[in-house]
């Protein structure tokens, strides 16, 4: 296979034993994959290893056939891999506009997705509320023209009305050929727009298949969560 983000037998060890082990994944362009699983299962560590925030101890990560394991975070980003982190990494002393324009001078897509930010463009991003900061972080990913987009906890801290607006935007990315990887505590939310669902428990994939199957079969979801 030529296109896509492919992960083979990935292992991550944060210093106290592996938190991710033997994970195989293939993210094809133009699809949405949802990773769900209980707390502490290793979902965030997996994303961090893919984007290069964490060093993987074993396995391969390939973008369009090229192994990127040895590449730095910046080099991986240059290959179109965008990671929206869980901890809202913004520049608190820069204004919202500056935060966004660091990525792309055309920020109209952000304002379309989050009209709330229009009034805040000249405020220092550090003065924003938690939910608004989440909008800035997501907004940066929107204008980064990613090839592969990984979002950790997209709905975290956002008002329901905002989450609703966000889902079609993610789908628009998919339609434009971006491979999207969502990590979401609200399994149902992510599975609803994903084609493929992955359940991770104790660092290992316990289910990989159609998202619709997980969504419609409550028992299957539960079994996968328990790692059976």
């Amino acid at each position: 296979m030529s296109g896509g983000l492919v992960i083979r037998e990935l292992e991550v060890d944060r210093g106290a034993g592996p938190v991710v082990s033997g994970v195989n994944l293939a993210i094809e362009p133009g699809t949405i994959t949802a990773i769900v699983g209980p707390n502490g299962a290793g979902k965030t560590s997996l994303l961090e290893a893919i984007s290069g925030l964490l060093t993987s101890t074993r396995g391969a990560i390939e973008i369009d056939g090229e192994d990127i394991v040895k590449l730095s975070r910046r080099q991986r980003a240059a290959r179109g891999l965008v990671h929206v982190e869980q901890n809202r990494a913004i520049f608190p002393s820069l204004t919202v506009r500056e935060n966004l324009e660091l990525v792309n001078s055309d920020i109209s897509a952000v304002l379309e997705a989050f009209p709330e930010l229009d009034k805040r463009l000249t405020s220092a991003a550090g003065l924003l509320s938690g939910g608004e900061q989440q909008m800035v972080v997501l907004g940066r990913a929107l204008v980064a023209t990613p090839k592969f987009l990984m979002i950790d906890e997209m709905s975290s801290g956002l008002a329901p009305v905002v989450v609703q607006r966000l889902l079609p935007i993610v789908e628009r990315f998919r339609d434009a050929g971006v491979g999207v990887l969502l990590v979401e505590q609200f399994a149902h939310l992510a599975l609803r727009i994903a084609s493929r669902g992955i359940v991770i428990t104790s660092g290992q994939v316990t289910y990989s298949g159609a998202a619709a199957a997980l969504l419609s079969d409550e028992a299957l979801l539960h079994r996968s969560y328990l790692g059976e």
């Binding site: 769900v36 209980p38 906890e153 505590q185």
Partner: peptide, 11 residues
């Protein structure tokens, strides 16, 4: 202040 952020639906 948002105590459930980062918890699963079941939690």
């Amino acid at each position: 202040d948002e105590p459930a952020a980062g918890l699963s639906h079941e939690e």
